[in-house]
Design a protein around this nucleic acid. Structure first.
Lengths: 345, 345
DNA sequence: ATCACAACTGGGAGCGCTCCCACGCGCCCG
DNA sequence: CGGGCGCGTGGGAGCGCTCCCAGTTGTGAT
């Protein structure tokens, strides 16, 4: 049996011990240098850093995690349905933001797709045993208890979006009300007189916000929202299609529709085509999400853009802050949305 | 200072020790049960499992990783550009497949986006120190040395796609040649006589395969590939647009185009519209990827579908196998592609 | 010159687990 | 009826790190 080099780790990689030996210092000192403790003289620090460089030392995560009782990893939890429905730009945008923010922290990103209640359960347990330092939650429904569970267990959590207006769990959201207002104001500004809306599922706060923004904008323009002009969808293309048909039956004179998702706008567009209505000639259309689909529609769809990457970044920053201080401040950020004008309106 | 309950972990969660005490056995035995060793009597196993359930014991990952010198985590490495260009269905499809395959293994998925050469470098080092059990590589370019580096270091790797026809690193690919053939045969079968193609960048093997399939199908139909009918793109919409214009200048009589990506097909479509050519009337169009964009084009785009989720699953299975036996068999899978016929052809 | 105190530093203890050696027991063979 | 064998089992050692306490040095005040 070969004798491993003194101080070498099992896998032949240098350990703290070895770095210490090479730098002519003790283990503790090397640890201090690595963790950026100020209580190390400049001389020593330099020597240690040199030794680290010479040896190509990389700290062993697991050992660190065990000793320090932290994992240097955060989980991004995504309901699987999300990766289908909002695949782009939602999902990848968030990931990009999170990943960018993590880039120089050497914290790892764990991706967890949740398919079933069982997996959900399993994840809670997992998180509960401090196997991650914090959790990023995406697309949480109004009745989801997980955020509270985690928060109660003392696990840092940041959600994307809120479940209600008085959301207690720290979160980063975008200004859905404002985005909807922007859309409707724009429609009104282009001289449209009868603006309808196709909404998302009413059990989702985000959907309710967009309706609120719609109504708000109408009121601000001195018009009363008309329930006949509000049709319910579920963010899917099919629901947009059905809702559009319903709207045209109820109010054939409408000349503009604000759809709470691009996908629904696509469905609506199809319905309009079936009815022989032109876009934007007869009916102007505005969507929400600014997905790549919007850009490629014919005519291209005016849409409200959410700063997905920015939200990912903000969530991550908030989570890291929470992990760091464990202070009592629960960040609640609302990022602005933006209207991207294209041919459909 | 409060006395922690005997055997309890720092964070108040039960440890192996505690489970052992409750089951009236030794630590080793509990470990054996958890790791499914056969050398435990049925009686003992039951008792231990009972104790685990009672206590709600969850093994501590870091401790495990440290002691066993494995991490129970695999990394999925994605060049960031990928999340933009092929956001959907490529990226999310792979993730879904990987995640599904990992669901009942309690192996974690680490997502690593690589933006810069520096980050690339950093990841190599990271992987080198056995901080992950294996690596899944996505969208590797022809000149990328990382796969070989990792493989040489003895780190299990599986790539999606190949860098060349004699790729040595284990990989899972889809049948790009076959897919292209399918597309061209289909076009020919619909009576098109002059079939052009818009290719991807020639430094990518996947792009070359698609050209090969194109040529192959033509030859099989008794026609000689004509270089004037082959225009180079880079998978982007803009390049498709430019290439289409070039093709029409060179060969105004062409009546079908096979595009090596949906994005390029969209660009081509736009060019055709600018030139007053109808689709599929004047020119039939086929894309590659079957992205959601294809479904929503007008007319909807016929496209070659790659089994993204299946590839994700296959890659994961291959990687787990490699990690498990570390046998010398280097899996090389090629999954079939499928033509999805829509209005554009 | 002496003492107090701060600034650094070394290294023991221990995180929760796996690995493996050694031990006890029952059984079969000679 | 004794020795051997193998199955189950207990528990020591140790993974590579952080934490922290005790030491060692250097500095300024007395």
């Amino acid at each position: 049996m070969a004798v491993t080099r003194r101080g070498m780790g099992r896998d032949g990689r240098p350990t703290l011990e070895q770095v210490a030996a090479r730098a002519g210092v003790g283990r503790g000192t090397v640890s201090r240098v690595i963790n950026g403790s100020p209580r190390v003289s400049e001389r020593t620090r330099a020597a240690v850093q040199q030794a680290i460089a010479d040896l190509g030392y990389v700290p062993h995560r697991a050992a660190r995690a065990l000793a320090a009782n932290r994992s240097d990893a955060i989980a991004l939890v995504v309901p699987e349905a999300e990766t289908r429905l909002f695949a782009e730009p939602y999902f990848s945008g968030i990931i990009r933001g999170v990943s960018a923010e993590l880039a120089d922290t050497d914290i790892q990103l764990l991706l967890t797709l949740i398919r079933t209640p069982k997996e959900r359960q399993r994840f809670s347990q997992y998180a509960a045993s401090h196997r991650v330092d914090g959790v990023l939650l995406v697309s949480v429904h109004g009745d989801d208890p997980m955020p509270d569970q985690l928060a109660e267990m003392g696990i840092p959590v940041v959600m994307n979006g809120r479940r209600s207006s008085d959301e207690l769990v720290p979160h980063v959201d975008c200004d859905n009300v404002g985005g909807a207002q922007l859309a409707v104001e724009h429609l009104l500004g282009r001289g449209r007189s009868t603006v309808a809306t196709i909404t998302g599922p009413s059990d989702m706060y985000v959907a309710r916000c967009r309706v609120d923004g719609y109504k708000e904008a109408l009121r601000a323009a001195g018009r009363d929202p008309d329930e006949d002009l509000i049709a319910k969808g579920d963010f899917s293309e099919e629901s947009g299609h059905a809702a559009m048909h319903k709207l045209m039956r109820r109010r054939p004179e409408l000349d503009a529709v604000f759809c709470a998702s691009d996908l629904m706008a696509i469905g609506a567009r199809r319905a309009l085509r079936e009815l022989g209505r032109s876009v934007p000639g007869d009916v102007a259309l505005v969507g929400f999400d600014d997905s790549s689909l919007a850009r490629h529609m014919d005519p291209a769809l005016t849409s409200v853009r959410q700063p997905m990457e920015g939200m990912g970044r903000a969530m991550t920053r908030a989570l890291l802050a929470e992990i760091g201080d464990s202070g009592p401040d629960r960040p609640r950020l609302v990022l602005p949305t933006e209207l991207v004008r294209r041919g459909s309106s």
